[in-house]
Structure formats: structure tokens, C-alpha cells
């Protein structure tokens, strides 16, 4: 008999349910602690700092930030910060252009992949490769592609009489276009992957029956596929919207938010004022405001989905 056996109480000593509850509590404990460590405590700290003018440059440790107390001034400033609002609109613009294109391209491709065809597996693997590429590396890829002497201009030159020497990343509009193209390249595969998984689950016999009854492909799509796919489409779009709102890595490597502030999205703006201006009290206020807005948005979205 081993030590462990000796220590274990007789089976009847402790009811199984209680045993399970205790183990369950212990098993979830590490995750609970990590969540507290990253969510609750930092948020309280953030709230505190956001009510002050504190900055690491003051030389005071953060617990004494009250010496720089300024009440809700940071939150008032936030409404008058034209750069902040421009960065928010810019982010929304990127999301509004990139996500629908990704969705439509992904859906279109997924529909072509429902039936079997030779080479399907290889094609599938290649198509999802872009989303595996480290986003920072993808940023560098597109940085190279969009150089004025780079391959994009070289390809365009095949179709124009004069060689194209467009400096994509140095002009506000084209820089934004380039950034959006990079996002579409990297994340259309995600839409494709998720939507294909959904399409495969649409019962084929229903489609065949509808076809026999004379429904056109468009009718079949609207009356059978879309209702079946609704939840999955919402998941796919929601995932991409959430991630696209955070857009940073690829864009930052390609343009650094420039030229000027032409591609300065919300994350880039916060990064800039965090690392250059070092006004951390104000950054904390912006960050908290974003968290509140996003949480409200999420609650609203979930309510709607449940209904």
C-alpha cells in the first residue's frame, strides 16, 4: 500500500459531489488568478491613473499619482482631441472597407470549395497560408511590394504605356489603400475557412430537393443556405470586426501610421502617445473609455443575438 493510498479517506467518507466541487474549484483557480491579475487589478490602476496628470517622466512612483490629481480633466480633453477622433474614424473606415470585402471574397471562394475537385486539399492549404504568416512579417512583405520600384508597380507597368513609379506608402490615399489590401490578403483566408466549415454543414439533400422543384441557384442560396449560415456568418464577421478594430502590426510596419497621420489608426495613435508623448494619465483615460464603449457594444450585440 502506497502513501497516497493510506492518506486517501475511505470512499464513503466524502460524498463524490463534494469531492468534485473541491477539485473543480482548485482546477479553475490558476485561470481565475491570471484573469484577476490582468483584468481587475490593472483596470483599477488604470482608473486611478486616468484621474491624474501622472507620467513616468514625473519621477514619482505611480501609487503617488494623486499628487497630480486633475479630476475628470482627461475625460473632458478626450472629447476635444481632434487627432483621437480622426484616428477613430480612420479605423472605422478601414473596418468598413476591409471586412465586407474579406467576407464576400471568403464566401465566394468557400462556395467553390463545397464540392470535391482534383487538388482540393493542396489548394485549400495554400489558400489558408496567408493567415499563418506572422502579421509583422506580412507587414514587411507588403512594405516591399509597394515600394515605388517594387513588384506591384512593375506589374502595373505591363498595362500602362509609361512605367508606373507610384510611391504607394508616401501618399495618404494610396497608403491607406495599401494597408487595406494587406489586411484583405491576410484575413480573407479566415473568412474562407470559417464560412467553408459552415457551408459544408448545409444539408445537400435539401439543396437537391429544391433544385428538383425548380429553384434557381440564387433562390436556393437565399432560402436555404443563408438561413442555415446566419449564425456562422455573424461569428465570422464579428471576429473580423473585433480584430480589425485593433489593427496595428501589419499597418505599423508598413507605414508607421504615416505619411503624416494618414494611416494612424486608433491603436497606432495610442501607441504614439504612449511611447512619444508619455502622457500616461491621458492614455489611461482613452484606454478606459475604449474598454467601456467596447463592453457596451458587446453587451448590446449579445442581447441582439439572443433575441
Amino acid at each position: 500500500m502506497t502513501m497516497a493510498d493510506a492518506r486517501r479517506p475511505a470512499p464513503a467518507a466524502r460524498p463524490a459531489a463534494e469531492d468534485g466541487a473541491r477539485l473543480g474549484f482548485r482546477l479553475t483557480l490558476p485561470a481565475q488568478i491570471l484573469v484577476l491579475f490582468i483584468a481587475v487589478f490593472p483596470l483599477l490602476m488604470q482608473l486611478y491613473i486616468s484621474l491624474t496628470d501622472w507620467s513616468p517622466l514625473t519621477g514619482t512612483a505611480w501609487p503617488r499619482a494623486w499628487e497630480y490629481w486633475n479630476g475628470f480633466a482627461n475625460y473632458v480633453d478626450l472629447f476635444n482631441d481632434a487627432k483621437l477622433w480622426r484616428s477613430i474614424w480612420r479605423t472605422l473606415l478601414v473596418v468598413a472597407i476591409a471586412v465586407p470585402i474579406e467576407f464576400l471574397l471568403g464566401l465566394g471562394l468557400a462556395m467553390l470549395f463545397v464540392d470535391d475537385f482534383p487538388g482540393k486539399k493542396v489548394a485549400y492549404s495554400i489558400l489558408i497560408a496567408p493567415m499563418m504568416v506572422v502579421p509583422a512579417v506580412a507587414g514587411y512583405m507588403f512594405f516591399m511590394l509597394f515600394q515605388s520600384g517594387g513588384p506591384v508597380n512593375d506589374l502595373l507597368s505591363w498595362f500602362t504605356p509609361e512605367p508606373v513609379a507610384l510611391a504607394w506608402l508616401s501618399q495618404p490615399t494610396t497608403a491607406l489603400v495599401a494597408v487595406i489590401i494587406a489586411d484583405i490578403w491576410q484575413w480573407t483566408p479566415l473568412m474562407f475557412l470559417i464560412l467553408l466549415a459552415g457551408l459544408v454543414g448545409v444539408p445537400q439533400d435539401q439543396l437537391r430537393a429544391a433544385a428538383l422543384l425548380g429553384a434557381s441557384p440564387a433562390q436556393r442560396f437565399v432560402t436555404i443556405v443563408i438561413p442555415r449560415m446566419k449564425a456562422i456568418m455573424i461569428i465570422a464577421i464579428a471576429l473580423r470586426v473585433i480584430e480589425c478594430l485593433k489593427i496595428f502590426d501589419t499597418l505599423f510596419i508598413m507605414t508607421g501610421g504615416g505619411p503624416g497621420d494618414a494611416t494612424q489608426t486608433l491603436s497606432v495613435y495610442i501607441y504614439d502617445i504612449t511611447t512619444q508623448d508619455l502622457i500616461w494619465g491621458y492614455v489611461a483615460a482613452i484606454a478606459l473609455a475604449i474598454l467601456v464603449v467596447l463592453s457596451l457594444g458587446a453587451v448590446w450585440a449579445m442581447r441582439r443575438m439572443v433575441r
Partner: peptide, 22 residues
């Protein structure tokens, strides 16, 4: 730990940029 699923989803929702100061 019935609170965990939602707490963890929210964690994912936050842009990392928004919790980086603390």
C-alpha cells in the same frame, strides 16, 4: 468557475493597447 467563459471572451475583446499602461 462559471464566470470564466464570459470573462475570458471579454479579455479577448480588449485591444491589448488599452491595457498596456497598467
Amino acid at each position: 468557475g462559471a464566470n470564466l467563459p464570459l470573462a475570458l471572451i471579454q479579455l479577448r475583446l480588449f485591444p491589448p493597447m488599452a491595457v498596456m499602461i497598467p
